[in-house]
Simulated assay, not measured.
Amino acid sequence: MSDQTVVDTENAITEEQVTKYLRKHPDFFVKQPGLLADLRLPHESGQAISLVERQVSILRERNMDMRHRLSKLLDNARDNDRLFDKTKRLVLALLEGKTLTDTIDSLFYSFDNEFKIHYTTLILFGDRAALSAGKARVEPLSKARESIAQVLKNSRPQCGTLSAEETRYLFPDFADSVGSVALVPLIHGNTFGVLAIANRDPGYYRSSMGTLFLSYIGEVLNRQLPQYLPR
Rank of each mutant, 00 (worst) to 15 (best):
V6W: 05
S132A: 14
A37E: 13
R23H: 11
D81C: 01
F115T: 00
A196D: 02
F29K: 00
N11C: 08
G189E: 11
R78Q: 15
A37V: 11
K24M: 03
F84I: 00
L214N: 06
L152F: 06
S177D: 11
E61C: 04
T161A: 13
G134Q: 04
F171W: 08
N63E: 15
I104P: 08
Y119R: 14
E146V: 10
N222R: 12
H68N: 11
G46Y: 05
P230R: 05
Y21W: 11
R82D: 12
G134D: 09
I49D: 00
L39I: 15
L141I: 15
A77F: 10
K135N: 11
G203Q: 14
L39T: 05
E10S: 13
A48F: 09
G210M: 02
S106H: 13
R200P: 01
E146I: 07
L70N: 04
R69S: 07
R168W: 03
Y205T: 08
G97P: 03
R206L: 12
R67Q: 14
V30R: 02
D105K: 10
V194F: 01
R82W: 06
V56W: 01
T87N: 02
V18I: 10
Q227W: 11
Y228A: 04
L183R: 10
D85A: 04
D38P: 00
A196M: 05
K98L: 13
T120R: 05
D105Q: 10
S215A: 15
V151N: 08
I187V: 11
N154G: 00
M64A: 11
L214A: 01
T167K: 13
M66N: 03
Y228G: 02
T161R: 13
L183D: 06
M209A: 09
D105I: 03
H43I: 00
M209Q: 13
Q158P: 06
S155W: 09
E114W: 05
L152S: 06
R62D: 09
E139T: 14
R40V: 14
S2A: 12
R128Q: 14
V184T: 15
F125T: 04
Y21H: 13
D112Y: 07
A133K: 08
F111C: 03
L229N: 03
V138G: 04
A136Y: 03
G193I: 07
G97K: 03
S106P: 11
R156C: 01
V184K: 15
G97W: 06
F125H: 04
A37H: 09
K86M: 04
L74E: 14
L162V: 04
R156M: 12
L51T: 01
S106K: 07
R206C: 03
I148P: 02
L107W: 03
K98G: 07
T99N: 07
H188A: 15
P140L: 11
L41S: 03
I104H: 08
K88M: 06
V151G: 01
P202D: 11
L36F: 03
Y216Q: 05
E96Q: 14
L124Q: 01
A144N: 03
H68G: 01
L122G: 05
R137G: 04
F213P: 00
S163F: 06
A48K: 10
G160H: 09
L122R: 06
P157N: 09
S71C: 02
G203I: 07
D3K: 10
Y228F: 15
L195G: 04
S155A: 15
D38V: 08
H43N: 12
R128F: 05
G46S: 05
A129V: 12
L59Y: 06
